[in-house]
Design a binder for these strands. Sequence first.
DNA 1: ATAGAGACCTGTGTGC
DNA 2: TGCACACAGGTCTCTA
Length: 291
Amino acid sequence: MPELPEVETVRRGLAPAVEGSTIGRVELRRPDLRFPFPQGFREGLEGRTVRALGRRAKYLLGHLDDGATLVMHLGMSGSFRVADGTTAADAFHFPRRKDERHDHVLFRLSSGDAIIYNDPRRFGFMTLVEPGALDRHPLFARLGLEPMPGVLTGEALAARFAGRTTSLKAALLDQSVVAGLGNIYVSEALWRARLSPRRSAGSLVRRDGSPSERLVRLTEAICDVIADAVAAGGSSLRDYVRADGSLGMFQHAFRVYDREHEACPRPGCRGTVKRLVQTGRSTFFCPVCQG
DNA sequence: ATAGAGACCTGTGTGC
DNA sequence: TGCACACAGGTCTCTA
């Protein structure tokens, strides 16, 4: 399910229920997701108050009152929902009912609400990071730039692209370059920037290490597509994104993703959207206007 | 450094 | 209806 916009949408949906609440009983309905839950995971959460729910890249971060951080990654198919304690019987009235077999973690809150983590494929994971250790934790130490204006600048991206022969598609999927992009938004950003996914990353950097016009265009396209997607509540494909069960809307704004054989939507372009496989993942692009 | 394959896991859609 | 296969929003590990 989740790239940065979907994770941010989940964060916004969960924050009102979670921030300021104390965690009661935690139910781990299996010993692992992608990885085993670490020793002391449950005990480290029960009785703690969540000061704030944050996000870095595709990670949700529960900042606890003892300084520890609950780190959560949704993998491909993870989702959260809030079961309202006062209307528990109605809590599962979703447009498409979640399969309760895949409800793997349940956090009871002091408010009476419960937060339920569902993940059919179990590529997600959770862990608990000691106070002060987040920035040097292996998951976070090498994370790249958040795709936001002022952070993801032409200069910053040029420094990371310089000398690299790998494709733009692969470079943008690399979380140590830009943190939070995934398969959908890379295709969409490259289309917006009119750049071929096969072009080498290093080709957008000038000899003196400064960003080319194309690279500046790319940074703007990335920031724009992410901002637009966040504003739309992310994209809902096969799964529901939002904690209240409602749908993201950005899938209706896809220009190339999952649109193979359709006409390129760029005004004046007569091209047709093509699909190719790079690093084992589908890339969608217009070979006519993405030179 | 980089590409590619395979791994993890379940569900869905397609074609026969 | 059943079956086989391809594919899916992520990421890690191994090979060459």
